[in-house]
Design a protein around this nucleic acid. Structure first.
Lengths: 135, 135
DNA sequence: TTGTACTGTAACTTTTTTAATTACAGATGA
DNA sequence: TCATCTGTAATTAAAAAAGTTACAGTACAA
């Protein structure tokens, strides 16, 4: 997996600490040490999941879309996840082989089970819990 | 993550089905549909973990290093894993920011917790269980 | 009503990671 | 002593991720 989850959590933690004061993408980028456009891109995605509100214009910026104790880290995981954590088989195994013929299906099932375990773990932790560590 | 786990499971399943008959890297590569040198490279790693035996020379090939009911899928996961499943923060956040200063530590802790959950899940499934699906 | 400071988004480039290929030395048995 | 394997390194190619640049659109305020 890539660093999207880390960036998302970083952003959300900053927004929680800001206490509904709007933060700009430039400020957030300064804390993470990445490009503001990248922050905006990531936020666009999180906003689609209702995790962040944005306001355009001169006094614009970002704030949390929900109460931090109502944001489970699994929500963040689901929002940024593009592949199962175990990875996805991208080979095209030999269909003439009894194993090759059906392994991708079984591997996908397994990956789904693991993702379920991850989500179950992350559902127990809220953004409020995580953010608490910085106070 | 990359496809190493999938390839490793594929190889181990083939070896289990072979019932101690030695398989060549070329045969294995033919089932997975990848390059034999890649198979040998992956096997080198798995062998370091005692999961596979190899024999050189004309009648050489590969076999399981342990009984399949004694190989947990978590063993395979540990063998191929190079990064935590959640990903690793590779940014260098701003140390002047209260959040930036300590977030990587907390993110790493979280990633470790998630990895523990994955391993706990995969420990309950053996290669024998998985391989059973193909019989 | 005009300037300023933001967000939103697309297009592009660079970097990093992963996969694939090639080649050949070494081992073993027929 | 030849054929058929493994072991491994070096290289190239392909794919994915990260970073950059640019600019249109929006909203507030002087």
């Amino acid at each position: 997996m890539n660093g999207q989850f880390q960036i998302a959590i970083h952003i959300l933690t900053l927004l929680d600490q800001a206490n509904d004061e709007l933060l700009s993408s430039e400020y957030i980028a300064g804390s993470i040490n990445i490009n503001p456009a990248l922050v905006r891109k990531e936020i666009r995605n999180l906003r689609n999941y209702g995790l962040i509100n944005s306001k355009e214009g001169k006094t614009g910026g970002y704030s949390l879309g929900k109460a931090p104790n109502n944001i489970a880290l699994s929500d963040v995981y689901k929002a940024v996840k593009s592949h199962p954590a175990l990875g996805q088989a991208k080979n095209l195994p030999n269909p003439a082989c009894a194993v090759g013929r059906q392994i991708n299906q079984h591997l996908d099932d397994l990956a789904a089970e693991v993702d379920t375990a991850i989500i179950s773990k992350l559902t127990k932790i809220t953004l409020a819990d995580f953010s608490q560590k910085f106070k």
